[in-house]
Amino acid sequence: MADAALALDRVSAGYGATHVLEDISLTVPRGERLTIIGRNGAGKTTLLATIMGLTRLHGGRIAASGRDITGMATHRRSALGLGLVPQTRDIFASLSVEENLLAVGRGKAGLEEAYAMFPRLKERRRNGGAQLSGGEQQMLAIARTLMTEPDVLLLDEPLEGLAPVICEQLMRVFEDIARDGRRTVILVEQHVTAALAFATRAVLLANGRVVHDGPAQGLHAQPGLLDRHVGVSLGHRDGG
């Protein structure tokens, strides 16, 4: 799979000397919708951070679009088409909403698209990044990453702590982003039902290892698997 959107080969990684991920191998074809599910502390966030080069890699290799990016600087991975929406959203507090968008990516050209996707952001364009509600922050975080025109979009628990109506709106946005296989989307989410409905493939992560990798649909038929590794039954979510 030389031209897979993303390929991890026996990756071990962590922070400092600690190992969070152990021996992860994962190939994500172009245009795939993948969801990564696991308990808190299973290593989901670390996995996304490792793909972006923000952790300490202890072993293994990572490739994007057939190109080896192991050891590549984080900002160059972004230029190669990898984009992460972090769980903590990390809105730049000293920048206004519009500056948050303009500071990255192509500048003005993408701005109208972003505002078309999230009209709320246009209303608040002059506001400081710190003055937004949780839902608005998440919209801004997503729009901001889209400004970098990612081929592979990594979403880290984008629904966390948001009202159901906002969650539904965001899921529609993700559907739109992934439509027709234009982009590869990797979704890490505690809302297992929503994640499985969105994804075509699901990877279960436990204790830093891949414990299951298969079609998202198949997981519905194996509730025991989810129960064991994620600690949730379908329909409920692990609030943690």
């Binding site: 900002h75 972004s78 920048l95 970098t148």
Partner: peptide, 25 residues
């Protein structure tokens, strides 16, 4: 300026700025 925005972004959060393609170095 865009440089100013990027600088402020990097001051706010270095990792996030890098993740969004800003060459913090």
């Amino acid at each position: 300026t865009r440089f100013g925005m990027r600088l402020r972004a990097a001051v706010d959060n270095r990792d996030t700025a890098a993740m969004l393609g800003i060459n913090t170095g």
